Amino acid sequence: MPRLKLTLEYDGTRYVGWQMQPNGPSIQAVMQDTLARLLGEPVVVNSAGRTDSGVHAEGQVACFDTARVLPLKAYRMGLNGMLPSDIAVVAAEEVPAEFDPRRWSRGKRYRYRVSNRPTRSPLRRDTHWEVFAPLDVEAMRRAARVLEGRHDFSAFRASDCQAKHAMREIRSLRVEGTRGDAVSFVVEGTAFLKHMVRNLVGTLVDVGKGKRPEAWVAEVLASLDRKRAGPTAPPQGLVLEEVFYGDGPPGGDEDED
């Protein structure tokens, strides 16, 4: 039975997240319903990560098994003709039967976008966190350096995070952009805790606003106390840009993003 891997792009604004939930439409439910119509059989679609309500993706990875054999263009073109305009398949390929989009992942890259204009932006309201106070980009950049590497990120995990431990590795954390316009936090790591990226961003933005000194970020990290960190940045600024894979399952940390 073929196993198909799809790379998805979506605007998460009107969805409750990836995972099927009783309180509203999910990306998973839409994908499963649309694939069932295309294939003429029910399928279960699993993903590389459970993006939250309002979170977007450029490179979400999903896979499913089907008894039907269709050309790959049926998923790139035919499926896109059936999906709503805020979800699209950007690539499709057949993968080994043992491929698991979550367990085989060797890391992910997220981008969190902030609009730092002094006034609100109608075009950015669903894709950026609007922070009107001018941000010191260089201060945030310096403060972010301490977060790179392998650490216990307990201070940056959601209170209901179910991960067995909080040790995670951030390969890189870049702060890009211009004070007074658009600022991005680009975070690449092996795996992430629930709300980890949004909590990191909320903490660094407190530094950018001048509410906290740069050295405070290291103190928060060492404290292992979520109450010491900054606020959780809102979901609409977050984009899953890419999921990285090798030739097989890597093992290691579990993802809770």
Score class of each variant (00 low, 15 high):
Gly202Ala: 06
Pro231Arg: 11
Leu135Val: 10
Val220Asp: 11
Asp160Asn: 09
Gly189Val: 09
Phe185Pro: 00
Gly189Cys: 09
Ala155Asn: 12
Arg171Gly: 05
Arg125Gly: 01
Thr190Lys: 14
Arg141Ile: 03
Arg226Gly: 10
Glu219Ile: 00
Ser154Lys: 13
Glu130Phe: 14
Val207Asn: 15
Arg150Ala: 04
Thr232Asn: 08
Met196Val: 09
Arg168Asp: 05
Lys164Trp: 05
Ile170His: 05
Val187Glu: 10
Val183Gln: 01
Pro231Ser: 10
Glu130Trp: 14
Gly230Ala: 13
Asp152Phe: 02
Phe192Lys: 04
Glu214Lys: 04
Thr178Phe: 07
Ala191Thr: 04
Gln236Cys: 02
Lys194Cys: 07
Asn199Ser: 14
His165Cys: 00
Val201His: 01
Arg141Asp: 03
Lys211Thr: 14
Arg212Leu: 08
Arg142Ile: 02
Met140Cys: 08
Arg212Ala: 03
Thr178His: 03
Asp181Glu: 15
Phe132Asp: 12
Val205His: 12
Ala143Tyr: 04
Thr232Trp: 06
Arg171Gln: 04
Glu138Thr: 06
Asp126Asn: 13
Gly189Thr: 06
Gly237Gln: 09
Met196Glu: 07
Pro213Gln: 12
Leu240His: 08
Thr127Pro: 02
Val137Lys: 08
Gln236Tyr: 04
Leu204Lys: 01
His151Cys: 07
Leu221Glu: 13
